[in-house]
């Protein structure tokens, strides 16, 4: 039996009078990458943001290694956020810092590495994402695909246990998508876990052990990519056609 690393129990979340989540429950096991699918506006980003406490859930529980992490204060959340990291849908790079400074930021904040060690580590990561020449560039000088890769690198640099990928491949060309999926697979090979939000079903099938479908504020489907293909459920059939 694999170890449960993250567990969501009956999560509910409402904005003004719009119910986004109406009772979401699922678990993430160690070493596993789970795909989270659903139409635009289904609440995928809000769910990822809730896990690391950027949004406050209304009810339910979020457990990380059996420790309750919803409704913690910011100081405690900041410790959790070094273990569970979130790669933003928009990249969210710091536009006053260059690529190197963006990726090095978490290292300067949370480690006691020397500047030389940080330099080395960031250079390695830049090689990995194929951007070793972009070190000095500012975010505004990067293409969308490059920004996403830098955002992903920044989310990975502290070797978190879980990464929440928010549409890391959206809007990219096939070559860039391949690079990102490779990075994700490498991360997984090292035994870490992830939740992969995407509209790209083939990509999800490629890296994910399990797929979840979010519909009307609940998990409509939870199963292996194989079960997904074989499912006779009408919603899933139309969903897999439309994406």
């Amino acid at each position: 039996m694999m170890k449960k690393i993250l567990e969501l129990k009956d999560i509910k979340k409402k904005f003004q009078n719009k119910d986004v989540h109406k009772g979401i429950s699922f678990s993430l096991f160690k070493g596993e990458t789970v795909g989270l699918l659903g139409y635009s506006g289904a609440g995928k980003s809000v769910l990822l943001r809730s896990i690391i406490g950027l949004e406050e859930i209304d009810s339910g529980q979020i457990l990380y290694n059996d420790q309750k992490i919803d409704h913690l204060d910011e100081n405690e959340l900041n410790k959790i956020r070094q273990r569970i990291s979130y790669s933003f849908q928009s990249g969210a790079l710091f536009d006053s810092m260059n690529v190197f400074e963006n990726i090095a930021f978490p290292l300067f904040e949370h480690t006691i590495l020397s500047e030389h060690e940080i330099d080395l580590k960031v250079s390695q990561v830049l090689n990995l994402i194929g951007l070793k020449d972009a070190k000095e560039l500012m975010p505004s000088d990067l293409s969308g695909g490059m920004q996403k890769r830098v955002g992903l690198a920044r989310a990975m640099i502290l070797d978190p246990e879980i990464i929440l990928y928010d549409e890391p491949t959206a809007g990219l060309d096939p070559v860039n998508i391949e690079i990102i999926l490779n990075i994700m697979q490498n991360f997984k090979k090292r035994g870490f876990s992830g939740i992969f939000v995407t509209h790209d079903i083939p990509a999800a099938k490629k890296v994910c052990d399990r797929l979840l479908i979010l519909k009307d504020g609940k998990i409509h489907f939870d199963g292996s990519p194989n079960d997904f293909d074989k499912s006779q459920d009408e919603y899933i059939r139309t969903f897999s056609m439309s994406c």
Partner: peptide, 17 residues
């Protein structure tokens, strides 16, 4: 501007205040 481009959220998500 940092807030509307989610850079404030990014600071928090990276575990800083």
């Amino acid at each position: 501007a940092m807030n509307v481009t989610q850079q404030i959220d990014a600071l928090r998500a990276l575990g800083t205040s």
